[in-house]
């Protein structure tokens, strides 16, 4: 009888531990069975990527459609090359779409937002966004503002 209680307690403990792990996976890290599915790569070159990092999200109309795979400096052009993993299901991004680096809130994390273009042709695996918009650097912005060089029409 005592052995039975012992085994039940241990079983409950193991179960609780594994359940905790599963909950951490599903509820906390948002891991779903679909995630980690098929993706394809797109590139974009930016003058300045600010605080963009691998695993930053890529969103379109506010919906996350992928994440940044890697960030590196292109030695030829001195621009930042960002490789993105895009969900395979989103295979209809027009080639004249714009990739811009934006900030969530005033001090939030930075991510890439894609605004849709109007072209009939779609971006394929390995291709690049021609039109990009760099990160907004607050210090530069303030500097410009103080010197009165901010273009009012912009």
């Amino acid at each position: 009888m005592r052995i039975r209680t012992l085994e039940i307690s241990v079983g409950a403990f193991m179960l609780a531990g594994m359940l905790a792990l599963v909950l951490l996976a599903v509820k906390v890290s948002g891991l779903s069975l679909k995630a980690g599915g098929e993706t394809y790569e797109l590139n974009a070159y930016f003058d300045n990527i600010g605080a963009l990092k691998p695993r930053s999200k890529i969103s379109m109309a506010g919906v996350t459609i992928g994440k940044v795979k890697s960030v590196e400096l292109d030695k030829e052009t001195y621009m930042a090359r960002v490789v993105m993993d895009i969900d395979q299901q989103i295979d209809n991004i027009p080639i004249d779409s714009t990739a811009s680096i934006v900030t969530a809130g005033l001090l939030g994390e930075q991510y890439i937002s894609i605004s849709i273009g109007g072209d009939e042709a779609f971006l394929r695996d390995g291709e690049r966004f021609e039109d990009t918009q760099s990160a907004l650097i607050i210090e530069e912005l303030i500097g410009k503002f103080l010197l009165g060089t901010v273009n009012k029409s912009e």
Partner: peptide, 15 residues
């Protein structure tokens, strides 16, 4: 065996 399970429980309860 116990340590990772306990750590998982700790994190979850903490959250």
């Amino acid at each position: 065996i116990s340590m990772p399970l306990l750590a998982a429980i700790f994190s979850l309860v903490g959250i």
